[in-house]
Write a protein that binds this DNA or RNA. Structure first.
Length: 352
DNA sequence: TCTGGGGTCCTCTGTCGA
DNA sequence: TCTGTCGACAGAGGACCC
């Protein structure tokens, strides 16, 4: 049989579960991993906390109101990265071709395996045995079907679906269920009277194209029909890196912003230099108090990675933009990254 | 209710040289 | 010499994802 078979493995409430591993006394309690500060958001909530209506990306202030007895933990990403490495090592020991997506998700190419679901049950058991963490698994003919299947019965789900079964099972689900249809697109679809995947799949292509453009309309229908042939690709090339900061309180003074930008540039350039990478495009990002986001960028003749090269460009972009309104977020980015090698005086020179 | 941080990708628009 | 076209590229904004 040469039919394609892909699995998606998704760790259950990953950050919370990792925290519970070292703080087992919190098991069974509503645990919420969220940043500190007045503008922090929730990173992950335990299933007990979700029963209070707490969810990811929710302002931490609101989570505290919904769940006043919740245990709030500050994220420890270094610890989560280490746990993620453990999980991915187990996955790799079972399946050769995998695509890691973030810290807690991975696609596995299972085509050609005699008993893919038995393989995935073995992977799941091995992860739980070696790390104490649980996950949900979806299996299907594509990444899209596998992904939606893994989300369908969390936690500890194990769902195997054909494309036709996915179409039937999720026909009544909201359009936002499939990846690629976010809140904005879902709202535009609702405004067009399309509130389920079934309706989207059978919508008139011409009417859809009139609203969304031909290419995007076709892509939306492909997703609603669970048509997907994206490969499981081992290598994800990083093409940009950035550092940004949301302030506890909006900032008006340009000199204060310049100082913060300098700090962000330093942090970013230390990372780039450590990784021996450099990029030609320097950009800044500014979010104003009305939540409008603005970017400014400049592309240089040569890749750069050091603060003395990135800093002046970023500062100039900031000064030219000015501060038309109070600023709530400032960021800096270097894009078009390429490998670089160390030169004679410790400077980074583009590798050939 | 008031929206993080760090990314990718897409679309539209303007510019520039062939 | 002037004009129109086209492709490549850069810049900006937005949507989306984990």
């Amino acid at each position: 049989m040469d039919a394609r078979c892909v699995a998606h493995l998704d760790m259950d409430a990953f950050y919370v579960s990792v925290e519970l591993r070292r703080r087992p006394e919190l098991r069974g309690r509503p645990v919420i991993v969220a940043g500190t500060g007045p503008r922090a958001v929730v990173t992950t909530a335990s299933y007990e906390a979700r029963r209070f209506g707490v969810g990811s990306a929710m302002p931490a202030v609101r989570a505290r109101r919904l769940c006043p007895d919740g245990v709030f933990l500050v994220p420890d990403f270094a610890y989560y990265r280490e746990a993620s490495r453990e999980v991915m090592a187990v996955v790799r020991s079972h399946v050769e071709s995998i695509e890691v997506v973030g810290l807690d998700e991975v696609y596995l190419e299972l085509s050609g395996l005699a008993v893919p679901d038995a393989t995935m049950r073995a992977v799941r058991e091995a992860i739980e045995e070696r790390t104490g963490l649980t996950c949900s698994v979806g299996i299907g003919p594509s990444k899209l079907v596998a992904k939606v299947a893994s989300d369908a019965e969390k936690p500890r789900g194990f769902v195997v679906l054909t494309r036709a079964q996915a179409c039937t099972r999720f026909a009544g689900a909201p359009c936002g269920l499939v990846p690629g249809i976010g809140p904005k697109t879902a709202e535009r679809l609702r405004a067009a009277g399309i509130d389920t995947l079934g309706k989207l799949a059978s919508a008139d292509p011409a009417e859809l194209a009139a609203r969304f453009g031909r290419r995007f309309a076709a892509e939306l229908q492909r997703r609603a029909r669970f048509e997907d042939d994206a490969p499981v690709s081992e290598q994800r090339k990083v093409i940009s890196e950035s550092r940004e900061l949301t302030f506890d309180h909006d900032i008006v003074e340009l000199t204060t912003l310049e100082r913060i930008l300098g700090d962000l540039v330093n942090r970013l350039c230390v990372a780039l230099t450590d990784q021996r990478r450099a990029g030609r495009t320097i950009g800044i990002k500014i979010r104003l108090d009305d939540f409008s986001t603005h970017t400014r960028a400049r592309t240089l003749a040569e890749p750069v990675s050091t603060a003395d090269r990135v800093g002046p460009v970023a500062l100039d972009l900031l000064r030219r933009f000015g501060t038309p309104r109070p600023v709530r977020l400032l960021g800096v980015r270097v894009a078009g990254l390429e490998p670089a090698r160390a030169g004679a005086e410790g400077q980074l020179i583009l590798a050939l």
